[in-house]
């Protein structure tokens, strides 16, 4: 057969970028944040990450091979990304079994039950995270306090997240200027010196990842920028109205996983809109919902919920928001 010429429809060349390479790009972009969390939370971060990634890959393999009896596609790296993101969204001292359960929910319910890669309406890592948050509220909100690299795992020194401190304090009648003394200052927040989920703390490292992904053209700027701008504007207005009740915009941006959510969670290919216009609306929706949940809701932080809620609107946006068609309007100039 090899003597014959091959015939196929054009185009006959390909850009050489494939799904696996894009996923590897995302993984590379996550590395700075991973290093940061290992620096802050020590061995726990490594254990959580390894467990989560391994569990996700194993579950995907097992489901594809034994349950669906179809081709196994773990080599495309999407399960690794889900595993990493799940790990980034939990505290670094979370017991291993709980992580494995989270991975099972992420991959089994969040992804494979909808038909695997490309078909899941909700971000799998967030499905896992929210499941754990509701099922194990104590473990999921016991945040280790960053204290440089250490070898202990389930560390005894725990504390609340900055947003938790603010929420609690406001409830007790304290004002923002008073509370600001109890939380790390903005520079510390930027570098990630605070309690929180292991991957969400280091804004600087996450932004490094964003720059890499934009440079490699893995994602476009639309979603992260619209989320960040919306949150900044919304909290900024509230802050200008009453600085004693509402924290400043920069504080909101640097805490509670806004950076992780805006850069890595909301930009997940499968669960974000296809058209730039829709991406901006999606981002704005996430921003508004996040602030509403944070300030008026029961939970101190709301990025995960906001993203999941907006995920649900993505099919609707894809159906009704169309790209700017060429030749739509007659322009003569």
């Amino acid at each position: 057969m090899s003597n014959y010429l091959k015939v196929s429809l054009s185009p006959h060349i390909h850009s050489k970028d494939d799904t696996g390479k894009l996923m590897k790009g995302v993984i590379i972009a996550l590395i700075p944040a991973l290093i940061a969390s290992v620096y802050y939370f020590g061995l726990g971060a490594i254990i959580v990450t390894l467990t989560s990634v391994a569990a996700c890959v194993v579950f995907e393999y097992a489901i594809q091979k034994y349950l669906l009896k179809g081709p196994v596609t773990i080599t495309d790296g999407s399960a690794v990304v889900t595993g990493l993101l799940l790990a980034f969204n939990v505290p670094s001292n979370l017991p291993v079994l709980i992580i494995i359960l989270g991975a099972l929910v992420s991959i089994g319910i969040g992804k494979m039950s909808f038909g695997g890669l490309g078909n899941n309406p909700f971000n799998p890592a967030l499905v896992g995270r929210v499941f754990l948050l509701i099922s194990f509220p104590v473990q999921m909100t016991t945040w280790p306090v960053p204290s440089g690299f250490k070898t202990g795992y389930a560390d005894a020194v725990t504390g609340a997240t900055p947003l938790g401190i603010i929420k609690e304090g406001l409830r007790n009648g304290e004002t923002i200027p008073q509370l600001m003394n109890q939380v790390p200052d903005h520079m510390q927040l930027f570098y990630g010196y605070m309690g929180g989920s292991m991957g969400e703390v280091a804004a600087a490292a996450l932004i490094l990842g964003l720059i890499y992904m934009l440079f490699r053209k893995i994602i476009t700027w639309h979603i992260p920028v619209s989320i960040i701008v919306t949150i900044a504007i919304f909290t900024g207005i509230l802050w200008l109205i009453n600085p004693s009740q509402y924290a400043d915009p920069l504080f909101h941006l640097l805490t509670g996983g806004v950076m992780l959510g805006a850069i890595f969670m909301a930009t997940d290919y499968v669960t974000s809109p296809m058209v730039p216009k829709a991406m901006l609306i999606y981002g704005a929706g996430i921003g508004i919902l996040t602030v509403v949940i944070r300030i008026f809701g029961a939970y101190p932080e709301g990025v995960s919920f906001a993203i999941l809620i907006m995920n649900a609107f993505v099919p609707l946006m894809n159906a009704y928001i169309k790209p700017g068609r060429f030749g739509k309007e007659v322009k003569n100039g």
Partner: peptide
């Protein structure tokens, strides 16, 4: 056989392209 079709494995696509293998 005189050539190899390397496209989508659907008759309609192959028919659209050329006379066949």
């Amino acid at each position: 056989r005189t050539s190899v079709y390397d496209g989508v494995k659907e008759c309609s696509a192959a028919h659209y392209l050329y006379g066949g293998e």
